[in-house]
Amino acid sequence: MIELRDVSRTYKRGADAIRALDHVTLDIDSGRFVALMGPSGSGKSTLLNIVAGLDRPDSGEVVVAGQKLPDMSEDELAAFRARHVGFVFQFFNLIPVLTARGNVELPLLLTHLGKAERRERALTALRIVGLEERAEHHPNELSGGEQQRVAIARAIVSDPEIVVADEPTGDLDAKNAVEILELLRALCTDFGKTVVMVTHDARAEAHVDIIHSLDKGVLADPEMAARA
């Protein structure tokens, strides 16, 4: 599903060049729940962005869902993301002026679906995350855990093969964090999604299939983690 070969990425910060990824090679199979862990600045988010088609490597090959991402134009990458990738962010990033349903419907505006069909699919996604009854609530009327569930519904509403999550439990209390991890686990187990998650949360180890550790842009040998 995801193949990275010898991928490097350097950022410029003022006069300094920061090596975020250093010749990273990585394979992630379809339907796996993968965690990228490591200290701050280790390159986790950069790796996630490259996998999701949000950023481009300076060198190396990136093939996701059978498509070579570095060869794509910006518009092609946008179309790729719309079709193949769902996103979950640490701070939920819901649109405050839209209801939960409106937020979940947002990616469907890029499709040719009619209004009724978009609504139906959004409600289905909200049902999956257990928030159908909160569909007409605005983000400021939802708890942090509920907002993150809405974000997950938004990520899966267009039925992508891959869900990327950047610190999805970083802004949640312990109870909600575990619920979100269980929900992401269920996306893999019940819906066959490939979930790639950046996290500092040690509780994640109990939920994921594989943990990849990064340090200073270099990928350590993968440590297989037993599913909880």
């Binding site: 179309a79 993301r81 701070f91």
Partner: peptide, 15 residues
């Protein structure tokens, strides 16, 4: 942030 999220979920530049 919101505009970045819109682009992340597939909104093209022109849109």
């Amino acid at each position: 942030a919101e505009i970045a999220v819109l682009k992340a979920v597939g909104f093209r530049r022109r849109l």
